[in-house]
């Protein structure tokens, strides 16, 4: 029987992904029994066949937060009827990503803004507590907040 008693070393769980280049600026990522296509680092076109890496990052953060609400809310006795998150991210200087000679700055994300729309009958105070707990427990929020300005707000809709 496996045991993790005092003094036993415990390695952190590792999640894994494998990414293969497909064609052009398209790659495919495999993770456990799933796969998804990634089109470019970031795109300035109106339409593309697949999301870009930056869009996956924004989507992943939103998915992390949305799932967090579903996990945490019941523990505060809060029932959520609907939840939607809109996110937008801005690079420090996207021209540096394009390799524009003479540009200053860097191509990293500078800010991510998010608005969390929640439909619930719970009080605002209670929802704020839930949101704080979601932030405390979110892997991606905690990773990104160390590198990027995260500016999130809650909007309670009936």
């Amino acid at each position: 029987m496996a045991s993790n008693g005092p003094g036993t070393s415990q390695e952190e769980f590792k999640w894994k992904a494998r990414v293969s280049w497909v064609t052009g600026e398209r790659s495919v990522a495999y993770s456990r029994n799933n796969s998804f296509l990634i089109e470019k680092q970031a795109s300035f076109k109106e339409k593309d066949p697949h999301p870009s890496a930056i869009e996956y990052l924004l989507g992943a953060l939103g998915g992390d937060i949305a799932a967090g609400f579903q996990t945490v809310a019941p523990r505060f006795g809060v029932s959520i009827e609907a939840l939607e998150i809109s996110l937008s991210g801005q690079l420090n200087n996207s021209l540096t990503m394009l390799g524009v000679i003479g540009e200053a700055g860097h191509p990293g994300l500078e800010t991510i803004e998010g608005r969390i729309f929640i439909s619930t009958e719970a009080t605002e105070e209670k929802i704020e507590k839930v949101w704080q707990s979601v932030q405390d427990r979110s892997p991606l929020f905690n990773t990104l907040k160390r590198a990027v300005k995260l500016d999130f707000s809650l909007v309670i809709v009936l």
């Binding site: 021209l95 394009l98 390799g99 524009v100 000679i101 003479g102 540009e103």
Partner: peptide, 13 residues
């Protein structure tokens, strides 16, 4: 393509 932030740099290039 090679992008430049201003014309002076590009003319020099």
């Amino acid at each position: 393509y090679v992008f430049y932030s201003n014309y002076e740099l590009m003319v020099e290039a």
